[in-house]
Amino acid sequence: LVRYRTISKIPQITLNFVDLKGDPFLASPTSDREIIAPKIKERTHNVTEKVTQVLSLGADVLPEYKLQAPRIHRWTILHYSPFKAVWDWLILLLVIYTAVFTPYSAAFLLKETEEGPPATECGYACQPLAVVDLIVDIMFIVDILINFRTTYVNANEEVVSHPGRIAVHYFKGWFLIDMVAAIPFDLLIFGSGSEELIGLLKTARLLRLVRVARKLDRYSEYGAAVLFLLMCTFALIAHWLACIWYAIGNMEQPHMDSRIGWLHNLGDQIGKPYNSSGLGGPSIKDKYVTALYFTFSSLTSVGFGNVSPNTNSEKIFSICVMLIGSLMYASIFGNVSAIIQRLYSGTARYHTQMLRVREFIRFHQIPNPLRQRLEEYFQHAWSYTNGIDMNAVLKGFPECLQADICLHLNRSLLQHCKPFRGATKGCLRALAMKFKTTHAPPGDTLVHAGDLLTALYFISRGSIEILRGDVVVAILGKNDIFGEPLNLYARPGKSNGDVRALTYCDLHKIHR
């Protein structure tokens, strides 16, 4: 019993810090008490220290592992850092350059016999395009090294910054494609005289377009951006097909006994025919423009016929181009109408809503002055909100995010209106959640004399007048207030005048 009563005193000691020596009952000389009392004092002292730490809000209350900052290894790049964003855009520009100039170089340097010394005699450094290609190869190699040090988000939505895990993730992902696209074939085969082989191998750079397509997928929600990307894709495919079309004609031209190829026909049409040795002929500019003209006309199913396939190889390629053109029509131009419709969806919704308003007016036989006010209010409210119901949009977000959005939407009023000066951010967040926005066209009466005042109004834009009878008592403008002081009276009061809008007004109100 003594032991039980001794232990039962522990909660009292913990909360009230009572010393055991003052209790005459606990001072009985028993061996059990002498053993338990020192333990009680020690526990009391420890609990006292913990309570003191909690009340003082000291940093040592938290466990040590929670006080440590997340460790980022040296030379690790955050995937959302500004440097990584700028670097990704730079790589994107280099990939676009590669997609345009690599097929052009591979096709127009394929057994090209233009006048001038061969590239091997001039030297590697004197070729501007080769120098640019070398810079692109170096940048792609540097990009691989950067990807080995860039964080990523795993399946659990955690940012991984450990170098080993980053390397394994990159090896399992895009490393092989990036490595093949970054191989400097110019340096590996330079001086061997195989410019045709170098041009063909350099087309491996186009593998990076797969990554670019995935990154550009984030802009699919913007109709104008999608339309622009589709047109660029169409032009890029036409450019690639033009390079292939020229390569076919250029390879067949020296081996044909009869002059029936499209390059021969082009030379005869523009007065620059090929001679018996295969030299001469149109310039590279004429060849490229004509090839691009043929691919565009074939892809769009126009086909004027002034550039036509004559050999079997050219006919087979033309059939493939027609098939590609039909697929592009289905996948690209078939979506253009939907994209344009999405661009004008706001206008369509406006006309639909206006039609419903006019049908309501016609069905209920609203008189002319009231009908005009109804239409003007709808037009003004639509121009202010673009038909978007803010309350319906915010309803799907958590309250903390709703408060931040409301604070942002009402920031101008909260910053410049005098009653809100000096208020804490928590108070402003709470008030912003209570605001209701209303609009009024010129001549609209917001409050009639004798109406119950259940709200306090803040003028965000425009001006109003307060009338008693036919006498203008006051004219209020931006950041002015009218209405009933909230919670100042037990019952809502009545208006002693009319409140009429002089201009288009936007008002925020808080109800009782």
Score class of each variant (00 low, 15 high):
residue 440 A to D: 01
residue 363 F to C: 09
residue 173 G to D: 04
residue 222 Y to S: 05
residue 415 Q to D: 10
residue 105 S to H: 15
residue 339 I to Y: 03
residue 155 A to S: 14
residue 344 Y to P: 03
residue 139 M to V: 10
residue 205 R to D: 01
residue 298 S to M: 14
residue 67 L to F: 15
residue 449 A to Q: 10
residue 221 E to W: 04
residue 213 A to E: 05
residue 381 A to P: 03
residue 361 I to F: 01
residue 194 S to Q: 14
residue 74 R to W: 04
residue 426 G to T: 04
residue 241 L to I: 01
residue 419 P to M: 04
residue 69 A to K: 14
residue 300 T to V: 01
residue 99 A to V: 01
residue 166 I to Y: 01
residue 192 S to Q: 11
residue 338 A to D: 01
residue 143 D to L: 01
residue 97 Y to N: 01
residue 218 R to D: 03
residue 283 S to N: 10
residue 144 I to V: 11
residue 155 A to K: 14
residue 409 L to F: 04
residue 100 V to E: 01
residue 437 T to F: 12
residue 430 A to V: 07
residue 143 D to I: 01
residue 338 A to P: 06
residue 408 H to N: 03
residue 107 A to F: 01
residue 335 N to M: 03
residue 220 S to N: 09
residue 360 F to P: 02
residue 191 G to T: 09
residue 379 Q to M: 04
residue 218 R to F: 01
residue 420 F to S: 02
residue 403 A to E: 12
residue 223 G to H: 09
residue 420 F to Y: 01
residue 183 I to H: 01
residue 105 S to D: 02
residue 321 V to A: 01
residue 202 K to V: 01
residue 433 M to L: 10
residue 115 E to T: 14
residue 246 Y to P: 01
residue 179 M to P: 01
residue 377 Y to G: 10
residue 102 T to D: 02
residue 412 S to H: 13
residue 108 F to I: 01
residue 421 R to Q: 13
residue 90 L to I: 07
residue 277 S to P: 01
residue 273 P to Q: 01
residue 177 I to R: 01
residue 287 K to Q: 01
residue 162 H to G: 09
residue 115 E to K: 13
residue 203 T to D: 01
residue 310 N to L: 01
residue 383 S to K: 04
residue 136 V to P: 01
residue 92 L to R: 02
residue 434 K to M: 04
residue 445 T to F: 13
residue 388 I to E: 07
residue 273 P to F: 01
residue 356 R to L: 10
residue 251 M to N: 08
residue 198 I to Q: 03
residue 89 W to V: 04
residue 418 K to D: 15
residue 142 V to I: 15
residue 98 T to L: 01
residue 191 G to L: 03
residue 213 A to S: 04
residue 227 L to C: 04
residue 352 T to K: 12
residue 73 H to N: 05
residue 424 T to W: 01
residue 448 H to W: 03
residue 248 I to A: 01
residue 326 S to A: 07
residue 181 A to D: 01
residue 307 V to R: 01
residue 168 V to H: 11
residue 112 E to I: 07
residue 96 I to S: 01
residue 211 R to C: 01
residue 176 L to I: 14
residue 434 K to F: 03
residue 180 V to S: 07
residue 213 A to Y: 08
residue 210 V to F: 04
residue 345 S to W: 10
residue 393 V to A: 05
residue 327 L to R: 02
residue 247 A to F: 13
residue 158 E to V: 11
residue 87 W to L: 01
residue 353 Q to K: 04
residue 252 E to H: 03
residue 304 F to T: 04
residue 340 I to H: 01
residue 344 Y to N: 08
residue 397 F to M: 06
residue 294 F to D: 01
residue 307 V to G: 01
residue 128 P to G: 05
residue 257 D to E: 11
residue 419 P to H: 12
residue 251 M to S: 10
residue 179 M to T: 13
residue 113 T to M: 03
residue 98 T to D: 03
residue 428 L to E: 03
residue 114 E to L: 08
residue 366 I to R: 02
residue 202 K to M: 01
residue 432 A to G: 06
residue 426 G to N: 04
residue 425 K to W: 01
residue 187 L to F: 11
residue 427 C to K: 01
residue 397 F to Y: 06
residue 439 H to S: 06
residue 443 G to P: 01
residue 245 W to D: 01
residue 164 G to W: 14
residue 327 L to M: 04
residue 179 M to A: 15
residue 415 Q to K: 11
residue 91 I to C: 04
residue 279 L to N: 06
residue 229 L to H: 03
residue 184 P to H: 01
residue 322 M to K: 02
residue 159 V to S: 01
residue 374 L to Q: 01
residue 172 K to H: 05
residue 377 Y to P: 01
residue 120 T to P: 15
residue 321 V to C: 03
residue 295 T to A: 15
residue 272 K to Y: 01
residue 264 H to G: 01
residue 257 D to A: 11
residue 156 N to K: 14
residue 110 L to N: 15
residue 206 L to T: 05
residue 138 I to F: 08
residue 283 S to Y: 01
residue 371 R to Y: 01
residue 242 A to V: 01
residue 335 N to W: 08
residue 115 E to P: 14
residue 278 G to I: 01
residue 328 M to L: 14
residue 176 L to T: 14
residue 391 N to D: 03
residue 183 I to S: 04
residue 238 A to Y: 01
residue 264 H to M: 01
residue 111 K to Y: 09
residue 372 Q to D: 15
residue 434 K to T: 03
residue 219 Y to A: 09
residue 115 E to R: 15
residue 409 L to T: 08
residue 416 H to N: 09
residue 432 A to N: 01
residue 174 W to C: 03
residue 200 L to N: 03
residue 134 L to R: 07
residue 269 Q to V: 01
residue 194 S to P: 14
residue 252 E to T: 03
residue 371 R to I: 01
residue 72 I to H: 14
residue 239 H to F: 01
residue 223 G to Y: 05
residue 171 F to K: 01
residue 368 N to V: 08
residue 305 G to Q: 03
residue 64 E to A: 07
residue 271 G to C: 01
residue 175 F to L: 08
residue 262 W to N: 01
residue 111 K to T: 05
residue 189 I to D: 13
residue 403 A to Y: 01
residue 157 E to K: 13
residue 349 R to Y: 12
residue 194 S to W: 15
residue 228 F to P: 03
residue 368 N to R: 09
residue 233 T to N: 01
residue 289 V to E: 01
residue 349 R to H: 05
residue 265 N to K: 14
residue 199 G to D: 08
residue 334 G to P: 04
residue 268 D to Y: 05
residue 388 I to W: 12
residue 208 R to M: 07
residue 150 T to V: 06
residue 101 F to M: 14
residue 175 F to Q: 01
residue 65 Y to N: 05
residue 386 N to T: 05
residue 417 C to Q: 10
residue 107 A to I: 01
residue 110 L to R: 15
residue 260 I to E: 03
residue 303 G to W: 01
residue 177 I to F: 07
residue 286 D to P: 01
residue 382 W to I: 03
residue 445 T to D: 03
residue 416 H to K: 08
residue 397 F to H: 01
residue 383 S to Q: 10
residue 302 V to I: 02
residue 150 T to H: 01
residue 400 C to G: 10
residue 76 T to D: 01
residue 179 M to W: 08
residue 66 K to I: 07
residue 422 G to S: 10
residue 261 G to P: 01
residue 137 D to P: 01
residue 429 R to N: 01
residue 181 A to H: 03
residue 405 I to D: 01
residue 370 L to F: 02
residue 156 N to E: 12
residue 188 L to W: 06
residue 240 W to I: 03
residue 135 I to T: 04
residue 314 E to T: 01
residue 131 V to R: 01
residue 351 H to E: 03
residue 299 L to H: 01
residue 298 S to H: 03
residue 101 F to K: 07
residue 128 P to N: 03
residue 69 A to M: 04
residue 382 W to E: 01
residue 104 Y to M: 01
residue 229 L to Q: 03
residue 225 A to K: 01
residue 138 I to W: 14
residue 136 V to C: 12
residue 145 L to Y: 01
residue 192 S to W: 14
residue 367 P to Q: 09
residue 130 A to G: 03
residue 401 L to M: 08
residue 298 S to G: 14
residue 360 F to C: 02
residue 306 N to Y: 01
residue 135 I to C: 04
residue 273 P to I: 01
residue 285 K to I: 09
residue 238 A to R: 01
residue 415 Q to E: 12
residue 414 L to Q: 01
residue 351 H to Y: 13
residue 111 K to Q: 03
residue 379 Q to N: 04
residue 225 A to V: 09
residue 99 A to W: 01
residue 235 A to W: 01
residue 241 L to H: 01
residue 297 S to W: 01
residue 428 L to K: 15
residue 276 S to A: 14
residue 214 R to Y: 05
residue 145 L to H: 01
residue 308 S to Q: 01
residue 392 A to E: 07
residue 375 E to Q: 09
residue 416 H to E: 14
residue 280 G to V: 01
residue 431 L to Y: 01
residue 355 L to D: 13
